[in-house]
């Protein structure tokens, strides 16, 4: 059996354990789709696959058990779903399936269409970003979440986008009930204090979560007309140095974020290790190689941040380093909690 696995993977099919059998990976930008497409996914699974569907970690579907020879038919059947989820097919003929798989599905929490905490329409912004970055072979994960609760775990992605609102205070509507102060203290960062019967907001502490606004019984606190975002950078999983994304910008705006994402692709194309396995390299490892300064020089090109924005300097890289274990292999915890070193090893 002859199969170009590079082409297969690029077409969003997987090389599986079973020879000659693949699975189809369906992207759902923003994680929201019309229910009718579930029926179409079901039909593909039952007609070409083994009748099951996997819900993926990044809000897509994976339809397993598809024989290689059925790929053209599956791609034909996928066309309606591709159209319906607004996925770009630049450079590919219709009916030939997904044109790339490197850039991962842009995932998003349920957002402000449903959730009272969300500070923006995560689905709409995810779909907008999808249009900008897909199709693309670079292995990039963009993740969106509605508020600093971060239900979507944006810090595990390369670019994390976390909704914020700048609380607006109308003193004439304040009845000094203290609900905002309690909510901020118990659920957020304790950025409010009572000064002369009114809450005073420490804008340095404030993370723009909007708890004060939701708690206020009298609309003394309301949301800013402009929407803001915290941008986190270069979270990654994997076998070398897993890392939570670190804070990059607080109070960024949508235009800046889109420019930063475009710039990050430029940077990655320029600096990616051409010999990286499968042409995949987490951007974070590239930044480890080039240095943060070089990355920032690219990332912030032509970015015009709002006045309120704060860029974190320096970026506080962190993370687990599995490879370091070998240096500490001669150490173990004693029952009493102290570390015992075995110098014979």
């Amino acid at each position: 059996m002859d199969m170009n696995t590079k082409e297969l993977k690029k077409n969003a099919f997987r090389v599986t354990k079973v020879r000659g059998v693949t699975s189809s990976r369906v992207r759902v930008p923003g994680g929201l789709l019309k229910a009718e497409y579930l029926g179409k996914i079901q039909k593909i699974a039952e007609t070409y696959g083994n009748g099951t569907v996997n819900l993926t970690a990044r809000q897509g579907f994976e339809i397993p058990g598809i024989p290689f020879e059925k790929i053209p038919e599956v791609n034909q059947a996928l066309q309606e779903i591709i159209d319906g989820t607004g996925v770009n097919q630049t450079g590919k003929e219709r009916g030939e399936g997904y044109p790339a798989s490197g850039t991962r599905n842009v995932s998003a929490c349920v957002g402000n269409r449903v959730c009272p905490y969300a500070c923006y329409d995560t689905t709409a912004l995810a779909q907008k970003i999808e249009k900008v970055i897909f199709p693309n072979d670079l292995h990039v994960k963009v993740v969106l979440t509605g508020c600093p609760n971060d239900c979507q775990k944006v810090r595990m992605g390369d670019i994390g986008i976390m909704g914020m609102t700048e609380p607006q205070f109308d003193p004439d509507r304040c009845v000094s009930c203290g609900a905002c102060i309690k909510a901020c203290r118990s659920k957020s960062v304790d950025a409010l204090t009572s000064v002369r019967f009114r809450p005073e907001r420490d804008s340095y502490k404030c993370i723009g979560c909007g708890e004060c606004i939701n708690a206020c019984p009298d609309l003394a606190w309301t949301r800013s007309q402009k929407k803001y975002f915290r941008v986190t950078l270069l979270g990654r999983t994997g076998k070398k140095n897993p890392r939570m994304g670190v804070d990059f910008i607080k109070w960024a705006d949508e235009d800046s974020i889109i420019q930063i994402i475009k710039n990050t692709y430029e940077y990655t194309r320029h600096y990616i290790n051409p010999d990286s396995p499968g042409g995949k390299e987490h951007i974070g490892y590239i930044v480890d190689r080039t240095g943060t300064e070089e990355f920032l020089r690219w990332a912030l090109k032509d970015v015009h941040l709002p006045d309120i924005a704060e860029v974190y300097t320096p970026l506080n890289w962190n993370g687990v380093e599995y490879a370091h274990n070998k240096y500490f292999g001669n150490q173990r915890y004693h029952e009493n909690g102290t570390i015992v070193t075995d110098f014979s090893k």
Binding site: P116, N214, T222
Partner: peptide, 14 residues
């Protein structure tokens, strides 16, 4: 009040 509601992208009528 457009966008003046408690939740994101909601209005307030008062």
């Amino acid at each position: 009040f457009q966008g003046g509601g408690r939740f994101s992208d909601t209005d307030a009528v008062r």
